[in-house]
């Protein structure tokens, strides 16, 4: 099947609809027009740049180049997680918890998949490694960011209840259990919903892309299932880890609630 090429005009026409949406938001004073335009511009510029980078990466297969690209993606994802929290942890914890959780989960899932399942030669073949990591990190980032946001906001809002439990001799795990549960649910619900709706309500982006590019649907489906399973485990483990680390940081060695370890609310966080 021949791939139908898109030119710049096709993309510009599609962008008109986003422009129209931004105009409506501006008229309705919804305060979303500016973030919408900024994120649209960022998306176009970032994807255009990554297109060039991927073409260069694919042309010569080099482990240091793939590793460097993976590190840049991870650090950028860590920055995004940090920016999405209104009450983030002070100091390096605010950046480190999310980044470490994503590194541990997404990189482990990616490495296992490349080595044990896809078995490309060499295993770090950028054509597989980079898109796989991109999808994993993108979803893990959303899960970890939601988990951390709900955890810190929940701890702040429920501080009286948490302390009431501490006063009765409850451990920090018991005192924070409800908040932790809700935070994990928030982090995992987008992935659970996406899997439940896949194929009925929505056709996932990667599978759609493969089909548009001419792959047989049955092959595209197999890759999509693999990606969903990886995303679910990557997001799940990443959210668990971020949840535990941040929760632990909210209490000191005497099991006291330490909300002074959170920064004041950041209203610019998205």
């Amino acid at each position: 099947m021949r791939l139908i090429q898109l030119d710049s005009w096709d993309l510009a026409i599609a962008a008109l609809f986003v422009g129209l949406l931004a105009g409506l938001s501006w008229r309705g004073r919804l305060q979303i027009a500016r973030p919408l335009l900024v994120s649209t511009t960022r998306m176009v510029v970032q994807l255009a740049l990554v297109g060039f980078v991927l073409e260069a990466l694919f042309s010569f297969v080099s482990f240091p180049a793939v590793a460097l690209m993976a590190c840049v993606m991870l650090l950028a994802a860590g920055r995004e997680v940090q920016a999405r929290q209104r009450r983030r942890l002070r100091g390096w914890w605010g950046y480190g918890v999310g980044t470490f959780a994503m590194f541990s989960s997404a990189f482990t899932a990616m490495t296992f998949t490349l080595l044990a399942l896809i078995q490309a030669d060499p295993w770090y073949q950028p054509q597989y490694a980079i898109p796989l990591l991109g999808m994993l990190l993108g979803n893990t980032m959303t899960g970890v960011a939601l988990t951390l946001e709900r955890l810190t906001e929940g701890a702040w809002a429920q501080r009286d209840v948490i302390e009431a439990r501490l006063m009765l001799g409850h451990s920090w795990q018991e005192a924070l259990s409800t908040v932790r549960r809700e935070s994990l649910r928030s982090g995992l619900i987008p992935t659970v919903n996406a899997m439940a709706a896949a194929g009925i309500v929505s056709l996932p982006g990667m599978m759609t892309g493969q089909i548009l590019a001419g792959s047989p649907p049955s092959e595209a489906v197999k890759y999509q299932i693999l990606i969903f399973l990886l995303i679910a485990s990557g997001t799940g483990f990443g959210s668990f880890l971020a949840n535990w680390m941040a929760a632990r940081r909210l209490f000191d060695e005497r099991g006291r609630l330490r909300l002074d370890r959170l920064r004041p609310i950041d209203r610019s966080a998205t």
């Binding site: 501490l166 006063m167 009765l168 001799g169 409850h170 451990s171 060695e253 005497r254 099991g255 006291r256």
Partner: peptide, 11 residues
């Protein structure tokens, strides 16, 4: 531990 102390000293 903190929790043990708070069991002995109720508030």
């Amino acid at each position: 531990s903190g929790p043990d102390w708070r069991c002995r000293v109720g508030f």
